[in-house]
C-alpha cells in the first residue's frame, strides 16, 4: 500500500532535498576526515598549499578515510558498466552472487516461517514448544554463529550458495513466523463464528478465512525478511574469505585499505536492499488490489 504512494509526484521534491543534503554533508565530512593525512603529505613533501589545494586533494586520495561521493560513483560506474558481468572485478557479478544467496534464503525463510506459523496457530503444543525456540534463535548474534555454520557445512562438503542461503534463512524466517502467527490469528470472532455455523473443517477455515485474512501481515513481514536476508548473505560471505559476493568485496577492501571499493560495495548493497523491499511492496499492492482492497 505504501509502495504506490512513494512514487507519487508530490514526494519527489522532499526526497531530492534530502539527497542533496546528504551529499553535501558527505562532501564536508570527506574534506574534514581526510585533511590530517593530506597535511602530513604536504609536510613530508615540504610544499606550500592553499585551501583550494587541500579541498581538491582530499577528494582525490587513493585510500581516503572517507572517499568523496564522486569517487565512489566513478568506481561503481567503472566496475559495473565498464566491466563484463562475468569479470571477477565486475560489481554486477558480485552483486549477483550475493543476490542469488539472498533470494534462495529469503524463499526458504518465508516458507519455513509460514509453515511454523501454521503449526503454531493450529496446535497448542507447538505453540508452547516451538515459539520459545524461535525467539531464542534470534538472541544469538548472527556474527557469532555464521562462521560455525559455514565451517561445519564446508566440512560435510557443502559450499558456495547453500551455506550463505541458510544464514539468510536463519535470519528471515523470524519476522515471517511472528507476522504470520499474528495474521493467522487476526480474523474477528464473527468471521470465525460464520465458519462454525457451516461446520467448516480446519482446512477450509484456513484456506477460506485465515490465509486470505493474513495477506497484509505476510507482505509486511516479507519486507523485513528480504532486507535481512541480504544482510545474512553478506555476513555469510565474510568469515570464509569468500572470493566473490558483496561481502567478499567488503572484506577484500578492508584488507587492502580500499575504502572506495568498500563504499561502492556498501552502496550497491543498500541499493539492492531498496530494490528488493520495493519489489515486495509492488507484489503487496498487486495482490491486495486483486483481493478487493480499497485503492
Amino acid at each position: 500500500m505504501t509502495a504506490g504512494a512513494a512514487t507519487g509526484g508530490g514526494k519527489a521534491i522532499p526526497i531530492l532535498v534530502v539527497v542533496v543534503a546528504i551529499v553535501g554533508i558527505w562532501y564536508a565530512a570527506t574534506i574534514w576526515l581526510n585533511t590530517p593525512w593530506q597535511r602530513d603529505v604536504y609536510q613530508r613533501e615540504g610544499r606550500d598549499w592553499t585551501v583550494s589545494d587541500l579541498v581538491a586533494d582530499t577528494m582525490a586520495q587513493e585510500r581516503p578515510v572517507l572517499p568523496a561521493p564522486h569517487q565512489v560513483a566513478i568506481e561503481i560506474w567503472q566496475t559495473t558498466v565498464e566491466k563484463k558481468v562475468t569479470s571477477k572485478r565486475s560489481l554486477v557479478y558480485h552483486a549477483w552472487i550475493t543476490l542469488s544467496a539472498t533470494l534462495a534464503g529469503f524463499a526458504m525463510g518465508t516458507v519455513l516461517g509460514v509453515v511454523l506459523a501454521v503449526a503454531i496457530v493450529h496446535n497448542r503444543a507447538t505453540d508452547r514448544s516451538v515459539m520459545p525456540w524461535v525467539i531464542a534463535s534470534q538472541t544469538i548474534p548472527i556474527l557469532a554463529i555464521a562462521p560455525m555454520i559455514i565451517v561445519v557445512l564446508n566440512a560435510v562438503g557443502l559450499s558456495g550458495l547453500l551455506p550463505k542461503a541458510l544464514i539468510s534463512t536463519y535470519l528471515s524466517f523470524f519476522p515471517v513466523v511472528v507476522g504470520m502467527v499474528k495474521g493467522l490469528r487476526a480474523p474477528e470472532a464473527i468471521q470465525r463464528d460464520l465458519m462454525r455455523t457451516y461446520s467448516a473443517t480446519a482446512a477450509q477455515v484456513f484456506w477460506k478465512l485465515r490465509w486470505p485474512h493474513s495477506m497484509p501481515y505476510l507482505f509486511a513481514s516479507m519486507k523485513v525478511a528480504v532486507a535481512i536476508s541480504l544482510v545474512g548473505a553478506i555476513v555469510g560471505e565474510l568469515p570464509t574469505g569468500a572470493v566473490s559476493g558483496l561481502g567478499a568485496r567488503l572484506l577484500a577492501g578492508s584488507y587492502y585499505g580500499q575504502t572506495v571499493q568498500i563504499w561502492s560495495a556498501l552502496l550497491t548493497a543498500a541499493a539492492l536492499a531498496a530494490v528488493l523491499v520495493s519489489l515486495v511492496g509492488v507484489a503487496n499492492s498487486y495482490v491486495l488490489r486483486r483481493m478487493g482492497a480499497r485503492p
Partner: peptide, 18 residues
C-alpha cells in the same frame, strides 16, 4: 450444527472483505 441444520444471519453483515 454439524448436520448444517440452520442458516444464521448475524447482527452485523460479516462479509469477507476480500
Amino acid at each position: 450444527r454439524l448436520n448444517r441444520a440452520y442458516g444464521y444471519v448475524f447482527q452485523a453483515a460479516a462479509l469477507y472483505p476480500w
